[in-house]
């Protein structure tokens, strides 16, 4: 029965072809994704060296890496990193922890929600960078001003996403918890928190990114005279453009690293979510 055999083979072969096309295009796409930034870098290097690009504004990438190496080997980079990283971590914690607590409280309690929600809605659209002078006014030129400023940037995305997460936990799970005799704190621990966790993590991801932005602004304008943001600003003023680019590169790497860390921790905290 060749007919039957062929009928069976044809769709399978077709499926294989489709599969092949898909895998082929996937690996091609990945190659393109790796090559395209490299092409930009090489072109940048070439054009900068050839004088097509103004070397004062677009120093060749090799010069930027060299500047970064100088910063690193002199210990300067490490000093600045200590300042900035401390601010980022302290700011992140004092922003994220209350945000999770308040977000959960809003999601669980309608009174809290009614009270807090309008305040958050009113403050949220204000450009965060615009309130730095206010923070300087309130808290002075101290280290803590930068913490609070970073914390504010972290707070909003975390509180909003946490609230959304808790509010969207299906009512049936609360019924189950109640039926099985869970008290308030147990309901919180076994239903509200894990149910909202995927959204909390999204909030933390966005919050980490926002925190980095706030850090850069505060260090450029907050008058501390150190940190990655200050180095960017200072290099601009001294017109040592290579080192300005070097610290911009540091910001990019830190941003990437933050996203990776939060993503990793997020996956550890939500092992029940299928990822394919």
């Amino acid at each position: 029965m060749t007919n039957v055999a062929e009928a069976a083979r044809t769709p399978r072969a077709a499926a294989r072809q489709v599969e092949q096309r898909r895998t082929l295009s996937r690996s091609t796409l990945r190659t393109i994704s790796i090559l395209s930034p490299l092409v930009v870098l090489v072109a940048w290097e070439a054009f900068s060296r050839a004088g097509v690009l103004d070397e004062r504004f677009f120093p060749a990438p090799t010069l930027i890496f060299q500047a970064l190496w100088v910063e690193a080997s002199s210990g300067e980079l490490w000093t600045q990193t200590q300042h900035s990283l401390t601010r980022l971590i302290v700011g992140f914690v004092i922003g994220a922890v209350p945000a999770v607590v308040i977000g959960v409280a809003m999601g669980l309690n309608r009174v809290v929600n009614a009270a807090v929600r309008p305040i958050i809605s009113a403050l949220y659209p204000v450009p965060k960078s615009a309130v730095l002078p206010l923070f300087l006014l309130f808290f002075g030129l101290g280290e803590d001003t930068i913490w609070y400023f970073v914390a504010m940037g972290v707070f909003f995305p975390v509180v909003i996403n946490t609230y959304t997460g808790v509010a969207n936990v299906s009512a049936i799970f609360y019924d189950v918890a109640e039926n099985f005799g869970a008290k308030r704190l147990t309901v919180f621990r076994t239903v509200a928190l894990p149910g909202a966790m995927p959204n909390v993590i999204t909030g933390l991801e966005l919050g980490a990114g926002m925190g980095l932005i706030m850090l850069a602004i505060a260090e450029m304008m907050g008058g501390q005279g150190n940190g990655w943001g200050f180095m960017v600003w200072n290099s601009f003023q001294l017109f040592t453009i290579e080192s300005m680019y070097a610290y911009l590169l540091v910001f990019a790497l830190v941003g990437l690293l933050l996203a990776l860390i939060v993503g990793f921790v997020g996956r550890k905290l939500t092992p029940w979510i299928s990822r394919h």
């Binding site: 049936i172 189950v176 005799g181 076994t190 029940w272």
Partner: peptide
């Protein structure tokens, strides 16, 4: 319960043990 009601964030074991653990 009617419909899906086991906790997606708990293992089968933890789901089955829920009432006992709570108590």
């Amino acid at each position: 319960f009617q419909g899906d009601s086991i906790f997606p964030w708990m293992s089968v074991w933890d789901n089955a043990a829920y009432g006992l653990t709570v108590r």
